[in-house]
């Protein structure tokens, strides 16, 4: 199987600190995979290894293999810029660019990728904003500052920004942890819609959220992937004692 995300023997370090140990995982294409685990367990580091964002941090190092939709992400000669175009990312805190309008935020990836035709940019902006379920709310305010939107809108703007470059994979690093329940529900709805066209990996601290949106779930603990399987099974009938302790709240 070439599609999806295939990770083999992945190890990651920050300086001398070994944060991920021999991670192996196969995530299905056009599906949602959730990653859960306590803070500091390496979930975020793991997804940052998938689009080569881990190495952006000074002193950070990765070994092992990652194949995303058939491409070897860490093959010699592979340009991380090209990898990141194929693999979009949404961060914990909404981070629209403060100097740009709503429109400019959405098309920034295309524009700085060299696209100058206005018609193409407009079409892409509308498509991405519709996909992110934000179009109806901002279609009359495309010239307003991106940071003038509400927190939930800002996060959907960031999702639209990531979708505008038409990635094959979307990585979401606790995308709802800074949002209220209503905005969270909107993002979850969005994830369920997007999964027919994209491979999605979502890191979350909210186990109900993982259960609601994902087909498969992985449980991380202290830099190791303890258990990975079908979401329902992992939550109702975990194989590992540590998983059971965590999901029942008997941990730490």
């Amino acid at each position: 199987m070439a599609d999806g995300i295939l990770v083999k023997d992945l190890n990651a370090w920050f300086g001398d600190h070994h944060v991920l140990h021999d991670i192996g995982i196969a995530m299905a294409p056009k599906a949602v995979t959730a990653l859960i685990g306590p803070s500091g367990c390496g979930k975020s580091t793991f997804i940052r290894c998938l689009n080569r964002m881990h190495e952006v941090v000074p002193g950070a190092r990765v070994t092992g293999g990652v194949r995303v939709e058939g491409q070897d992400v860490y093959a010699p000669g592979v340009d991380p810029v090209q990898i990141r175009r194929k693999i979009g990312m949404v961060f914990q805190k909404p981070n629209p660019f403060p100097t740009m309008s709503v429109f400019d935020n959405v098309v920034v990836g295309l524009r700085l990728g060299g696209m100058r035709e206005r018609a193409v940019l407009h079409e892409a902006a509308e498509r991405a904003l519709r996909q992110a379920a934000l179009w109806d709310e901002v279609k009359d305010a495309l010239g307003k500052s991106g940071v003038s939107l509400s927190g939930g809108q800002q996060q959907r703007l960031c999702i639209a920004r990531a979708l505008a470059v038409e990635p094959e994979v979307l990585l979401m690093d606790e995308p709802c942890s800074a949002l209220d329940p209503i905005a969270t529900a909107k993002i979850e709805e969005l994830i369920l819609e997007l999964r027919s066209t994209l491979t999605i990996v979502i890191v979350t601290h909210n186990m109900q959220q993982a259960a609601r949106v994902s087909e498969a779930t992985g449980f991380f603990l202290l830099g190791e992937l303890v258990e990975f399987g079908v979401t329902r099974q992992l939550f109702t009938n975990p194989r590992d004692k540590r998983t059971e302790d965590y999901i029942t709240g008997r941990f730490g």
Partner: peptide, 15 residues
């Protein structure tokens, strides 16, 4: 400039 700005831009595949 918050590092989140840099990360957001890098993650979009901008050189």
């Amino acid at each position: 400039v918050p590092s989140s700005m840099r990360e957001a831009a890098l993650a979009l595949g901008i050189p």
